[in-house]
């Protein structure tokens, strides 16, 4: 193995997608990123069914009050090194739901967030670009080790 490749994040990124109350707009764009037109799976990324297999937590939607503890629990279940992406503006800041009585707050008040993908919903390629940014972070963490 060359020194160069040591710097790369060695695993394929596996992603756990969690919906905390979004309108489905972002969710279908995430699925669209997996399907032939954008095909994110060519980078070895895939959606997995449980957080314990995942490297990246992908969250969509504002966090509802009764999803608050579930998000925390899922975040703790993701093994280190991990990263969190928020897709869509309502997860980042509340967006159109900003004065709702059942929203617990933007995601970064609840768990640490690494990358924000603004858009309502973002195009699939914007999500791919967001994943690339997460890649940077994971590589950085790998480099420090």
């Amino acid at each position: 193995m060359t020194k160069e490749s040591l710097k790369t994040f060695k695993k394929s990124l596996w992603v756990f997608h969690m919906n905390t109350g979004s309108c489905n707009g972002c969710d279908i764009e995430i699925v669209a990123a997996l399907t032939p037109r954008y095909d994110i799976e060519r980078f070895g990324m895939m959606l997995v069914g449980t957080p314990r297999h995942a490297d990246v937590l992908l969250v969509t939607g504002p966090v509802m009050k009764n999803m608050e503890d579930k998000v925390k629990r899922v975040y703790e279940q993701v093994p280190d090194p991990k990263a969190v992406i928020v897709v869509g503006n309502c997860g980042a800041t509340g967006g159109v739901f900003h004065e709702s009585y059942s929203v617990a707050g933007p995601l970064d008040k609840i768990i640490p967030v690494d990358v924000y993908v603004p858009g309502c919903p973002p195009r699939p390629e914007a999500i791919i670009y967001g994943v690339a940014k997460v890649w940077l972070k994971l590589e950085e963490m790998e480099g420090k080790k």
Partner: peptide, 24 residues
Amino acid sequence: NIPEGVYPWRKDEKGPQKLVRDMY
């Protein structure tokens, strides 16, 4: 989501106004 005794569609003192958090 919200405690019992709060009725979101009410306009009187039983409304959900006090449960709103300012996100910005």
